[in-house]
Structure formats: C-alpha cells, structure tokens
Amino acid sequence: MTHEHDITCQNILENLNTYIDGELGDEICADIEAHIQTCLDCRIVVNTLKKTIELCKYADSESSLPVETRHRLFAKLNLEDYEKKD
C-alpha cells in the first residue's frame, strides 16, 4: 500500500489476523478502527479479507458425508449394528 499512513498501515498488517479473529485488546482495536475509517486501502483489505474467510466457509458448507460413504465406514469398522438409519 502506498499512501501517507505507511507506518500505521504496516501496524494494521502486523495485527490483521488477530484483529479479524477478535483477539486484540480494546485499545489497539479502537486504534485500528479509527485508522480504517480514514484509510481506504486498509479498509478494503480488512473488509475483503473478512469476506474471503466468510465465502470460503460458505463454499464448503454443502460438503457433507454421503450416506453410502458413511455406510461403508461403519461396515469397515464392523459397526453396522450401531449405524443410525436416517
């Protein structure tokens, strides 16, 4: 990123993960939020990074275990007697 907030932008990058995960203290969170209000580049990076994580979770949400695969798993472990039939 190339604009007048270089040092503070660098701080944002250093804390990006922990900020997004909500693992930062209140004070530094407030500093970051104040910065991204005025720095468009950082705001875009933070928002697109959050959205990326959200979309990746969503893209995977329909990958559930097929019934046949589940059945073969129980059979492989000789646990057919305990398999719940949906």
Partner: peptide, 15 residues
C-alpha cells in the same frame, strides 16, 4: 461408544 464417536466425527473428518 466407538459408533458414537464415529457418528459425531465422521462428517468433519470427511470434509
């Protein structure tokens, strides 16, 4: 209990 562990975890391990 093995079957219960299978039930509770097979989806996530497959994913």
């Amino acid at each position: 209990v093995f079957a219960q562990v299978l039930d509770q975890n097979s989806d996530r391990i497959y994913r």
